[in-house]
């Protein structure tokens, strides 16, 4: 490391917040909670929330403080916030027809999910950076991804796109990278842990 680099790093360290709040955002079922649990387990030994195949499992934001990530010769103290999935529509029939829930439970879940979306949007005012989780096996041009990215750019929030679920045969992280070339895209499998080292380096680089 040259003198200039060392100086810049030192100056950056002086002005860095003691804890960076990083929001994990994305549409439902992109793997946000699986990722939050992976990060939390890797650095604190404890999971953050319950992950499930049923959409809108996370209906309230959950926060893990003091997640100290060490990578690329640096360490940063993060607050990791797992936010409810953002959606433009929530139909309780989906929980009944596709997930075998009874109607009362399905309606409760749908109602809580709408409140979760509102809470996730509110959290955008409180985070210092965002991990935007996309399902690499799905079309990245969905309105939630595009709307979120537009807002993150408008707010100038540091953002790393996570191309998750690359363990799936049909996953194509390159499609995400091509769709949003102005952002760093890190392919991972939050489920298996593949690619997490690269993600931690990216978090240090872009949020540090």
């Amino acid at each position: 490391m040259g003198f200039f680099d060392a100086l810049m790093k030192g100056l950056k360290g002086l002005f860095r917040k003691k804890q960076m709040s990083i929001g994990i955002y994305g549409p439902p079922n992109a793997g946000k909670t699986t990722l939050a649990n992976r990060i939390s387990r890797d650095w604190t030994g404890k999971p953050l929330g319950k992950a499930s195949d049923i959409p809108h499992e996370t209906r309230k934001a959950k926060e893990r403080k003091e997640v100290i990530i060490k990578a690329a010769g640096s360490k940063i103290n993060f607050n990791i916030i797992d936010t409810p999935g953002i959606a433009t529509k929530i139909d309780f029939h989906n929980f009944v027809e596709n997930h075998g829930m009874n109607k009362t439970d399905a309606r409760n879940r749908a109602k809580q999910a709408t409140e979760g979306v509102i809470e996730a949007i509110k959290w955008l005012d409180r985070v210092d950076g965002v991990l935007l989780v996309m399902d690499a096996a799905q079309d990245p041009f969905n309105q939630v991804n595009v709307t979120l990215l537009g807002n993150l750019e408008a707010r100038k929030l540091p953002t790393v796109i996570i191309a998750n679920k690359i363990d799936l045969e049909e996953a194509s992280p390159a499609t995400i990278r091509d769709a949003f070339p102005q952002h760093a895209t890190i392919p991972i499998s939050a489920l298996s842990g593949y690619g997490m080292d690269n993600l931690y380096k990216a978090m240090i680089k872009y949020f540090g």
Binding site: K89, I90, R107, T114, V117, T147, N151
Partner: peptide
């Protein structure tokens, strides 16, 4: 983008299922 986010937020508060 901010209007879209407003649309989502208000939509969520008005969904009646």
């Amino acid at each position: 983008p901010s209007e879209e986010l407003d649309l989502i937020r208000i939509t969520m508060s008005e969904i009646d299922h």
